[in-house]
Amino acid sequence: MSTSTDETAKSAADPAGISGAAIRAGDRSFLGLSRGAGILVLAVMAAIAAFLVWKAIPSLQVDSANFLTEQSWLPDQTPSVFGIAVLAFGTFVTAVIAMLIAVPIGFGIALFIAYYARPKFGKALGFIVDLLAAVPSIIFGLWGLYNFMPAVTSFAEWLTEYLGWIPIFANDKQLWTKSLLMAGLVLAIMVLPTVSAISREVFLQVPRMHIEASLALGATRWEMIKMAVFPFSRPGMISAAMLGLGRALGETIAVALILSAVFEVNTHITEPGGNSFAANIALKWGEAGEVGRSALIASGLVLFLITLAVNMIARWIIARRKEFSGAN
C-alpha cells in the first residue's frame, strides 16, 4: 500500500510531467531552497567528521602507544600514552547488556499496548512510556546510583553465586556495585522508552485487514502476531532496536555517574570498573590539557564512526528485508 502511494507521489513530483519543459521561476527557487535544506544535512554530517578529524590529529600524532589497543589513558603525560581499547570494550559490553534486555521487553510493552491492553489504557501507558524518554539522563544516573543499584546488587551476587562458573560472572573483588552490568541495566531502562515507542508506532500501522484475516482463519493471538504483525513490522522493529542502540552507545552522564571508571579491560562484568567513550569524555574533559582535549575528541570521533556504522548496517538490513517482506 505504501509502495503504491510512493509511486504516484513520485510521478506527481516529477515537474516535467506536469507543465512540460517550462518550470516556473517560483518552483525553481522553492526546489532550490528545499534541496538546499536537504544538502545541509549532508554538509553538517561531513563537517562533523571533518572537524573531529582535524582536532583529533594533533593528539594522534604524539600518541606513543597504539590508539586502538592501548589500555591506559594518559594523553597529557610526556610521552603521551592513550588508547581506546577500554572505552570500546566498555561501550560494547554495556550496549549489548542494554539491548539484550531492552529489545525483548520493549517489543513486549509495545505488543501489550497495541494488542493486549484496552485502547484507552494502552494510550495512557504509551504516554507514560513516552514521558520517560524526556527524563534527563543525569536523573537516571542519580536514581540508578542511589535507588536502583542497591536494589539489584543481590541479583548480581546471585549471578556470581550460581553462574560464577561462566567466566564473565566470576567476581574476585567481592564487590558487585558500579559495574558494567549495572550500567548496562540502567541503560536498558533508559533505552526502553525509545525501543517501545517506535515499535509501538510500527505495530499500530499493521493493516487491520491482515490482523482480521489471520484471526478469521482461526489463528490464536500469538499466531496472529507471529504471522501478520512481525513480517509486516520487522524493518520498523529493527530500526527501533537500532535507535535504542544508538542511544545506549552515546549515553554520557548516567554512565559516567554509575561506572567506577578505570582503564583496564575487565571481563568480569559484575565487578566495579569499566568505562565508555561518552562517559570518559565527560569525566576527563574539565581537567584535560591541550593534548588531552584532542585525545578526547579523537575518542569522540571513534564513537561517531561506530554509530555511523551501526546505522548504516540497520539501513542495509531494513532495505534487504523490505524486498522479501510479504506485507508489501
Binding site: S72, W73, L74, Q77, L145, Y146, K173, L175, T177, K178, A256, L257, L259, S260, A261, V262, F263, E264, P272, L283, K284, E287
Partner: peptide
Amino acid sequence: PGKDWVAPGGQGAKGSDQVIA
C-alpha cells in the same frame, strides 16, 4: 601522582559530591 586515579581496587565516583555521598 596525577589528576587521574591509577591504583587498582576500590570504587570510583564522579566528583567530590558523589564520593562523599
